[in-house]
Amino acid sequence: MTTANQATIKDQVRQFIREELASAKGISTFRDDESLMANGVIDSLGVFRLVTFMEENLGVRVGDEEIRAENLESVDKIEQLILSKIKKN
């Protein structure tokens, strides 16, 4: 995994969250380390939209037991989850 690819993944995640989840909540900016569950950007349905995005666009499989706040609550944590899966493969 190159730094460029890593940046691309983070960019894609950030873009998806901004365009598909945050905008509908009237939120235009958020930090990469900000809890998107605490600020309401990612609700229970948003979690599954995010997982579907990861599965369909980034080619990773997310297990039931991995769908939890500690893995999905911020852009940084989502990126970590994706990278850990790519490294395993």
């Binding site: 229970s44 979690v47 037991e65 939890r68």
Partner: peptide
Amino acid sequence: LDKEGSGQAIFTT
């Protein structure tokens, strides 16, 4: 079951 705060994931599964 699992951790505090896992209820949503468990219920949705």
